[in-house]
């Protein structure tokens, strides 16, 4: 059982406040991804949990044990670093067994666990090599095997795949997800790659300027972003926004169209994902500006009412720059945000 509880954690570096009052509970065996742009505080939060950084205020529990005053080695965690941090003076075998040797486990137990985790990461044939003789992908496998061999309560990963090339990253992503699910450890995974986050996470915590904006399942974060930031950050391309003025009760005037929406409020923002737009006889008048055929679909960047607006259309659809399209939103996919609070309005 290793539930992680983070209560009121804040961190400042001099005058700069990197984290503001973070509260988060991560369930036992959950795969939690901290997602955000660089400088949002996600790595700082991870390093506070690991004990490599000390929180200015706040408390952290792992499995009901308060750990924020313990040194990293006593926290029951292990960590995978972005640059792998494989020890260059030790063989792969000794790297994976490093933590076990520190625990003074008997030799045959070390061998058993090293061989098991090496098998899990498919690097049995590399055990005698040194880090200098390995490729980036292999080093990453060693780093993960080393973390798993500790059989930790919690495994922490700081952008572990970002130094790999695109194809390898996709392969490792799926493999890592499988291995971690099997090992039944709680995992916290830091990334700035939303595709990685969506594909691996049980739950995503979207971070922005030292705060957690939304913590929910990937599909929830995608479909029902709790704030304008999340809507504009998740999705490639992100959500489209248009200003909305109240018409009659429950109806909103958006770029010359009347659309059903929530009651009340003086002004709202209308939001729709590019793939939730359909061509129709009636709808937003969109002037096509840039047409990008992406194979699977066609990305059309247009202008609606002077605002940037993107639509993802069928790749067979023929359109030229300057043409006017009629785009209509799928009604159940429309979202609304309050421009004052930037939060979602139901």
């Amino acid at each position: 059982m290793a539930q992680i509880e983070i209560k009121n954690v804040a961190k400042s570096f001099g005058a700069y406040q990197a984290l503001h009052d973070i509260n988060l509970t991560i369930e036992d065996q959950e795969f939690m991804v901290l997602l955000g742009a660089s400088g949002c505080g996600k790595s700082t939060l991870l390093r506070i949990i690991a004990g490599l950084e000390t929180a200015t205020t706040g408390k952290v529990w792992i499995g009901g044990r308060r750990i924020d005053n313990l040194s990293p080695k006593d926290r029951g965690i292990s960590m995978v670093f972005q640059n792998y941090a494989v020890f260059p003076h030790l063989t792969v075998f000794e790297n994976i067994g490093f933590g076990l040797r520190m625990q003074k486990l008997p030799n045959d137990e070390v061998t058993r666990r090293v061989e098991r985790t090496a098998g899990l990461m498919h690097i049995e044939q590399l055990l005698k090599r040194y880090s200098g003789e390995l490729s980036g992908g292999q080093r990453q496998r060693v780093a993960v095997a080393r973390a798993l061999a500790m059989e930790p309560d919690v495994i922490l990963m700081d952008e572990p795949l970002s130094n790999l090339d695109a194809l390898l990253r996709m392969e490792m992503r799926a493999e890592l997800k499988g291995v971690l699910a099997e090992s039944k450890t709680t995992a916290i995974y830091v990334t700035h790659d939303q595709v990685e986050a969506m594909s691996m996470a049980d739950r995503i915590s979207v971070m922005h300027e030292g705060k957690i904006v939304q913590a929910a399942s990937p599909i929830e974060v995608y479909r029902n972003p709790s704030a304008e930031f999340v809507a504009g950050f998740i999705g490639n391309p992100p959500m489209n926004f248009l200003p909305a003025n109240p018409a009659e009760s429950g109806k909103w005037q958006v770029a010359g169209q009347v659309i059903d929406g929530p009651g009340a409020s003086a002004q709202l923002k209308f939001a729709i994902r590019p793939e939730d737009l359909r061509l129709a006889d009636d709808g937003f008048k969109a002037v096509a500006k840039v047409i990008e055929p992406l194979g699977a679909h066609l990305l059309v960047t247009c202008e609606v009412d002077g605002q940037l607006f993107r639509a993802v259309l069928d790749s067979d659809f023929k359109v030229k720059p300057g043409e006017v399209l009629n785009l209509t939103p799928q009604p159940d996919r429309v979202r609304w945000f309050d421009p004052q609070t930037t939060l979602a309005v139901a």
Partner: peptide, 15 residues
């Protein structure tokens, strides 16, 4: 020597 090597050692049971 990258700082991460030392940090990795700390998380693996080193002082």
């Amino acid at each position: 020597i990258p700082m991460e090597l030392e940090e990795a050692a700390w998380t693996l049971g080193c002082t």
